[in-house]
Design a binder for these strands. Structure first.
Lengths: 130, 130
DNA sequence: TCAAAATATTACTAAGTAGTTGTATATGGA
DNA sequence: TCCATATACAACTACTTAGTAATATTTTGA
């Protein structure tokens, strides 16, 4: 529908999004970051850390995932800079490194909700249910 | 669905990010959306559409991707609601459906840049390069 | 030093997907 | 109607990766 990007109020510069004319080498970094967040299990872990730092056992319990699986995902999240690792005795405590990931997820949630609502309205209009 | 119905005033409520306590079924929608943006080729196409609507041939030329490949990616982007499709004669014109994807990419770019800068500073401190 | 607990790693299988080649389906013009 | 152009689709290969079972590593306490 709307073609050009025009939202002057947003803190991120709308006219210079920086994403255009970027070489694939740079886009690969962005793609890799999105890829880390493109798995349900990792989003579950991120959600589990929303309430604060947790050790691995707590994350396993909260998510219901297997131990080896959680360990692997935590490594991926750590390497991506999304969570930080801190050892405490035999336990290892993980926490969100940058809460902006929650804003990211929220933006997507909002967009998806708006999208679904629009689809529902169009469907209702087609069916004359109004 | 999400906790998005709680704060109608602010677009991104920081206290109620809505991403916590979400069932995997909802997280799957978010994950699928991120997955669409987690491929360099699709980001290339999105970038190509930053300057405005383009037909498939133009996208092929701008991205350097194969025709069948572009067609497949455009289908994925369309199904995800990221681009819209409009036929014009023998050509099909695609355009960005919601410019918020650019804000998303920009947020990730900013975060990655800050992350890399921080790493560089830590490295310099370790090496005493100041 | 030994044992137990917590976490990490390895090896493996199964599932998903990006890219390609070949083909099919329009659409407009001669 | 026939042909050229533009786009979509199908089948295939190669590669990646999520999940799991088994094992290794680390730390604490007795």
């Amino acid at each position: 529908m709307s073609a050009a990007s025009s939202s002057p109020t947003s803190p991120t510069a709308p006219d210079d999004c920086g994403v255009a004319h970027l070489p694939p080498s740079v886009l690969a970094l962005v793609a890799d970051f999105f890829k880390v967040l493109s798995e349900v299990s990792r989003l579950q872990i991120v959600c589990a850390l929303k309430s604060g730092p947790h050790n691995v056992s707590e994350i396993i319990e909260e998510t219901g995932l297997g131990q080896a699986n959680v360990s692997k995902h935590l490594k991926i999240l750590t390497q991506a800079g999304i969570v930080t690792r801190q050892q405490q005795g035999t336990s290892v405590i993980y926490q969100i490194a940058n809460p902006f990931v929650f804003e990211l997820c929220q933006s997507v949630c909002d967009a998806l909700a708006a999208q679904m609502q629009q689809q529902n309205q169009q469907l209702a209009a087609l069916q004359g249910l109004r």
